[in-house]
């Protein structure tokens, strides 16, 4: 199970990094989303991956040893919510800056740092 998650995270990071290096705003945002999901998978795997071992048991029963740790899952939940908010903002910004600047190419965005002329 861990191997599968590790491979998935690796593929996501590779694909994300490739997209981010295209130099265009929208693929950059998509690539970033992939990498942040890979980070979520990494945290997920730190909490133990188990099948059919509930972490919370009703009544007086003790927690089964070796059950998954629920804390990393709670951390991911926070990270997903924050990541989603940031993604929406980044997409809106990409859209607005495309309309204002007339380009989605990062190399052509030189308004804030104009090319110096002598």
């Amino acid at each position: 199970m861990e191997v599968m998650l590790a491979l998935t995270a690796g593929v996501l990071v590779a694909a994300g990094a490739y997209l981010m290096m295209t130099g265009k705003t929208v693929p950059y945002v998509f690539g970033l989303t992939m990498i942040s999901n890979a980070a979520n998978l990494i945290i997920f795997s730190t909490g133990r991956l188990t099948l059919a071992k509930p972490a919370l048991v009703p009544g007086e029963a003790i927690t089964i040893s070796g059950a998954a740790n629920a804390l990393p899952q709670a951390l991911i939940l926070t990270a997903i919510v924050i990541g989603f908010g940031l993604l929406v903002f980044a997409l809106a910004l990409a859209y607005r800056s495309y309309y204002a600047l007339g380009t989605a190419e990062m190399d052509e965005m030189r308004v804030a740092e104009p090319v110096e002329r002598d």
Partner: peptide, 20 residues
């Protein structure tokens, strides 16, 4: 908007590194 695009893009990478 130009500055913010770079600010947002580069800071979000740092965010992902932090959480990992």
């Amino acid at each position: 908007l130009d500055g913010a695009t770079k600010y947002v893009g580069l800071n979000l990478i740092a965010t992902v590194a932090f959480i990992s």
